[in-house]
Design a protein around this nucleic acid. Structure first.
Length: 798
DNA sequence: CGCACCACAATTTTT
DNA sequence: TTGTGGTGCG
């Protein structure tokens, strides 16, 4: 039982601490002050969650656990209480209860960018001491942990990290060796399967056993690939991205003293974007927090858009069950967008079933309604976006206030043309990334092999680029020999003349290994940037590109030079001038980290990449069925929910103006298709939308006449997609009316009998000129595409 | 072994 | 439309 004195003391202390966070709202303060035990913060888009994280850390560093416990400091007396209550300058000292050392805090994010931003904001708020806080990504935290103790798992100290492309080429090679067809075993799928197995803590042997028990032919094959993959990685002293986390978890499980060490160290663990974690990451976070039990996760189930890469929304949905004493705080006040935008986003996401439930609100006023534009095609769409941006710019906005979001990278090209024509400065984020370009990968592979010659995979990548006359066949033989002897490919090649099988390529191989040895020796005494110059010189790589006629090769040469500045800037920023240091860093680095918001240009990116960002004006283009939501999601309720969350993310990026654009027909992958407007547009109540029509475009006549809407299948009894509120706000979409007078009476879904093809059903109607392209699913010959006007002559309704 | 040409397919992405 | 991978020829 608390004494009166204790009670007053705690109250005064809490009041004082609260006052330090005046600029936050009540919910946010609550989250900042709740330092002890498990805490789930459900932070809606734009609700200031990073601010909460920063302030929470500030609270810990300043006041320790004082705001969330009833312990009194030693020697607490009336005099102290008086000081606290009057709030003198010493009061702050008295309010603190064992301030937390910065290095006892672990804040985990997903991207380097988020981690850097966190670090920067912490430093701004807390000064120098912020540098000792572990604010890093899951992967970099694991690397730091593994660098100390990876030897306990049998890895060498300087293990290398394979990125996705490395893993993929290894998988491909193994598939080929095991004579598995890439058509029936697509590398991506196999990788995904292996990744999921790792996520489920299943090693290759366990996976294969399970497959064998189930007598699953396919999984047995994949299990064999998994086994070989694991073996190869291990002998190359390499880990892939999943291994970084899986091995850390294994290390913590197996080695009690290692676990104790880290558990004791990390008094407070915070995880950002918790909705994007997978099972492994959950295990890691909960293990690390297992000592003190102070785990705080922040996330938004409505913004979970990475299921396809293994994130389980379950983690956030079941956090409260995992931690029974958990407290949950919802942050629903939005500081980013105006009312119409938020209401639209709320209305869309309400149609999802699997969610915790949250409604964003703002006191910023309704703002402008959302603009909806129906474009003729993707050119018109791009033109509309460009001219709207020009108009906005001429009214004083900056280019960088505008972002264009799309579902697929392939959608950016028309926009780029339009922007170039209009003279709008722009940047495209994403697409093929710098570090994924083949020339960059080649040179990094050289550096990796110099650092660790046992890296067979990267060795075979570079052995013949530039061409050295060492072909695939020779490398296969060498690889076999290496496997027989249990040594590295490099060592076989360096002794090639001793093998009868390698007689022909032996000289070339030796020449190559000698060159690599020389580079290795050079690396001993020189910095990475000097080594890089030497590398370009000795291999002739740059010369090969520069002497090429092809423009693309010239661009590649630029990238090769660009890589050097990456090396230099790493050395400058980290103060580390070892090759190993650079390689470890670069493996976990992407260009997104380069995105600087200061450059004044319009930004284009996918909706996925936009997560976490905000812009005064946002355009979401391609709002059409089978583009967004994508074709693959239609008819798949779970996928559809993910698409809807993506839509929610896209809409909530906008601060003041939001434009949705759909095109009546569009060319994609060299094919023209017409799709009805996205269902997500329908899900936005009409009062939030202003419709914009192209010149001379009679909205309701032509939209129906052209079959812009197909039948709304949501009313069908067996349709899997069920909105939680059955309320199509837009009038139920009409069936396409067989247009002008002469057009025969057929519409979508009709059962027909064709003289030549027999019975069928019309599955798609695409307006084309004053005719329709129809797709008919026939019973016998399958799907046929016909022009309706002509086909109608031979066809009748059944 | 290296290069040129043709067929084919094609979300989303971080580490 | 673009990029990639396989095949065939010199």
């Amino acid at each position: 039982m608390m004494t009166n004195f204790e009670h007053r003391f705690c109250e005064a202390r809490r009041r004082l601490i609260r006052a330090r966070f005046q600029n936050l709202n009540d919910r946010q303060i609550e989250a900042v002050l709740a330092t002890e035990g498990p805490l789930l913060i459900l932070a809606g888009a734009g609700s200031g969650k990073t601010t909460v994280l920063i302030n929470r850390i500030a609270n810990l560093l300043r006041f320790g656990r004082a705001s969330d416990c009833t312990e009194l400091p030693a020697g607490a007396d009336e005099a102290m209480l008086h000081l606290l209550e009057t709030g003198g300058p010493e009061a702050e000292e008295l309010a603190a209860l064992e301030p937390v050392a910065p290095w006892r805090i672990l804040a985990i994010t997903f991207t380097n960018k988020a981690a850097d931003e966190l670090k920067a904001r912490l430093e701004r708020m807390l000064g120098e001491s912020a540098n000792d806080i572990w604010a890093c990504t899951f992967h970099s935290a694991c690397v730091r942990i593994l660098r100390r103790d990876a030897d306990k798992l049998g890895y060498g100290e300087n293990f290398t990290i394979y990125d996705t492309a490395d893993s993929q080429s290894l998988i491909k090679r193994i598939l080929k060796e095991q004579e598995l067809d890439e058509k029936s075993f697509p590398p991506r799928t196999v990788m995904g399967e292996i990744s999921r197995a790792k996520d489920a803590r299943m090693d290759a042997a366990a996976y294969r056993q399970q497959a064998q028990r189930a007598n699953d032919f396919r999984r047995i094959r994949i299990g064999r690939v998994y086994e070989e993959y694991t073996r190869r990685l291990f002998t190359a002293n390499a880990m892939d991205f999943d291994d970084l986390i899986a091995n850390t978890v294994t290390l913590l499980e197996k080695e009690e003293d290692v676990r104790r060490y880290w558990q004791r160290r990390f008094q407070y663990v915070l995880v950002d974007e918790y909705q994007d974690t997978n099972h492994l990451q959950y295990l890691l976070a909960s293990t690390l927090a297992g000592g003190w039990g102070n785990i705080c996760v922040v996330g938004d189930d409505d913004q979970s858009i990475y299921k396809f890469r293994g994130a389980t929304i379950e983690n956030i949905l079941s956090f409260e069950q995992q931690y029974s004493k958990c407290r949950t705080i919802r942050l629903e006040q939005n500081y980013r967008s105006t009312g119409h935008i938020l209401d639209a986003a709320n209305a869309v996401i309400r149609n999802n079933l699997g969610r915790k439930g949250k409604e964003l609100w703002t006191d910023a006023g309704a703002g402008d309604p959302i603009e909806l534009y129906f474009a003729d095609d993707e050119k018109d769409e791009a033109q509309y976006v460009a001219s709207t941006i020009i108009a906005s710019f001429s009214q004083g906005a900056n280019w960088q206030d505008h972002a264009v979001l799309y579902r697929m990278n392939a959608q950016s090209s028309q926009l780029e043309f339009a922007f170039k024509r209009a003279g709008i400065p722009y940047r495209v984020i994403g697409g093929t990334r710098f570090f994924d370009r083949s020339e960059v990968k080649d040179l990094l592979a050289y550096l990796n092999v110099i650092a660790s010659p046992a890296d067979d995979l990267r060795l075979s990548r570079i052995v013949n680029s530039p061409p050295r006359g060492i072909g695939e066949r020779s490398m296969e033989i060498a690889q076999d020999l290496a496997r027989q002897e249990g040594c590295s490919l490099f060592s076989v090649m360096s002794r090639a003349d001793r093998y009868a099988e390698l007689k022909r390529p032996a000289a070339k191989m030796k020449l190559f290994t000698q060159m690599m040895e020389e580079l290795r020796a050079f690396a001993e005494n020189n910095s990475p940037d000097a080594l890089y110059d030497e590398l370009l010189e000795k291999t002739g790589y740059l010369r090969m590109l520069e002497s090429s006629e092809d423009d693309k090769d010239q661009a590649r040469a630029e990238n090769v030079k660009e890589l050097k500045s990456s090396i230099l800037s790493f050395m400058k920023e980290s103060g580390d001038s070892t090759l190993e240091g650079y390689l470890a860093n670069v493996a976990l680095y992407t260009d997104l980290d380069n995105y600087d918001r200061d450059a004044d240009s319009v930004v284009m990116m996918t909706m996925h990449s936009a997560k976490g960002l905000e812009f005064p004006t946002v355009f979401v283009v391609g709002m059409e069925e089978s583009i967004f939501p994508g074709l693959r999601a239609i008819g798949e309720p779970e996928e559809m929910e993910e698409e809807r969350r993506l839509c929610y993310v896209a809409l909530t990026r906008a601060k003041r103006r939001l434009y949705l654009v759909c095109a009546r027909q569009r060319m994609l992958f060299g094919r023209t298709t017409a799709n009805r407007a996205s269902r997500f547009v329908d899900e936005i109540p009409e009062e939030h939308i202003r419709k914009n029509l192209p010149k001379g475009y009679a909205y309701h006549d032509r939209r129906e006449e052209l079959g812009f809407y197909s039948r709304d299948r949501r009313d069908e009894p067996n349709y899997p997609y069920r909105p939680s509120q059955p309320k199509p706000r837009v009038a139920p979409a009409p069936r396409p009316q067989p247009a002008p007078s002469a057009m025969p009476q057929f519409s979508l879904g009709d059962a027909v009998r064709h003289k030549a093809f027999g019975d069928g059903v019309i599955t798609k109607m695409t307006p084309m000129g004053n005719d329709f392209l129809v797709e008919i699913q026939f019973e016998k010959p399958g799907v046929k595409k016909l022009m309706l006007r002509a086909a109608a002559q031979h066809m009748e309704k059944r």
